[in-house]
């Protein structure tokens, strides 16, 4: 029995699960001639402040630093651009151990953040129910205190003769970490382990938040579908949850690794001269040695190394379309 009146409620747009990212967008406005110029210009006008901001506060200093890195001279006689590219080679030759250490510490901290952060993000996104907002606030709560103060607090926590050291010593944990070269004797402070712990603590929220965001978007109905299709609980995680949270893992690791590799506060306050990272070298070249060209060259080298690693990482993760 076909009715001449087709009721509107019967015709529904097909639902496209997960189609929010790549759904073809058809703009009704675009087809309409009339005032396309004004409407077309508006987005650019709105972009202007951000573009100016980046130009003045990002691009200009970059160019300035680039020029500094190619100068020679001294503080007394003044610096001059001489295209002295050798500064780069010399700087890298002198400080590559600190670079390697930076990457090692940042990589370790990133890995620790992932291992600690993933279960927590999963708990908040999937299981927390009405506690999720409370838990999210708790995750970002450390930001209410200054970075410096928090790192100083860690100094007290890990201090020689403190409770933590005493406990770990009694449990013989320090013997193990000492054998691995992570700690020295019966102290935590001024060891690589302390620096990595500090870095992990500092950047953990940057790991948890993107992980939470991507896990929160995973449709629980997909878990049911996977269970229905003979996937045991571990298989559901490995085949569905984990791949679908990959964008969160990628952005979380980047947000942790990049700032961690340039960090110098943790190494400064929790480490020793043996744990100096690239950031510490740059800081001292700029502020103590006052060798500006070397400091600027080191900054660019660090940037280049991190950029290279991140590019390789994203390529390898095969997630270019996910990070986009």
């Amino acid at each position: 029995m076909s009715a001449t009146k087709v009721s509107g409620s019967e015709v529904r747009a097909p639902e496209i699960p997960g189609g929010d990212t790549n759904a073809p967008e058809v703009s009704a406005d675009r087809a309409r001639p009339g005032a396309p110029t004004r409407r077309g210009a508006l987005p650019y006008v709105l972009l202007l402040p951000a573009v100016l901001w980046l130009l003045v506060l990002f691009l200009v200093p970059m160019v300035y630093q680039a020029s500094t890195s190619l100068q020679t001279g001294s503080l007394e006689e003044g610096f001059e651009v001489t295209w002295h590219v050798r500064t780069y080679a010399d700087a890298f030759g002198a400080y590559w151990p600190q670079f390697a250490r930076s990457l090692l510490y940042a990589g370790s901290a990133t890995l620790l953040c992932l291992v600690l952060g993933y279960p927590l993000a999963y708990l908040i996104a999937v299981k927390a129910g009405r506690w999720r907002h409370t838990l999210l606030v708790l995750v970002v709560a450390p930001f209410f205190t200054s970075f410096l103060i928090r790192t100083l607090a860690w100094k007290a926590i890990l201090a020689d003769g403190g409770t933590v050291v005493a406990l770990l010593d009694r449990l013989h944990v320090l013997d193990v970490t000492g054998a691995l070269g992570w700690t020295e004797g019966n102290r935590l402070l001024a060891t690589p382990l302390a620096v990595v712990c500090g870095l992990t603590y500092s950047f953990l929220p940057f790991m948890i938040l993107p992980l939470y965001a991507s896990l929160d978007r995973v449709d629980v109905r997909l878990h049911e579908a996977a269970r229905d299709l003979y996937a045991s609980a571990p298989a559901v995680f490995r085949r569905v949850t984990l791949p679908l949270s990959l964008p969160g893992i990628v952005s979380g690791t980047l947000l942790t690794f990049i700032p961690a590799s340039g960090d110098y506060i943790n190494a400064e306050l929790l480490g020793s001269t043996d744990t100096r990272m690239a950031g510490n070298v740059i800081q001292s070249q700029f502020l103590r040695v006052l060798d500006y060209p070397t400091a600027a060259a080191l900054s660019f080298l660090l940037m280049a190394v991190v950029l290279l690693l991140v590019t390789v990482y994203i390529r390898r993760a095969g997630t270019e379309d996910l990070v986009r």
Binding site: E15, P17, E224, R227, D228, Y230, L244
Partner: peptide
């Protein structure tokens, strides 16, 4: 028997296709 051990399969209303 848990769902993943039952010889029964479902076509879900939302389809629940794996987007990845």
């Amino acid at each position: 028997l848990p769902a993943h051990k039952r010889p029964v399969n479902t076509v879900f209303q939302s389809y629940a296709l794996f987007p990845h």
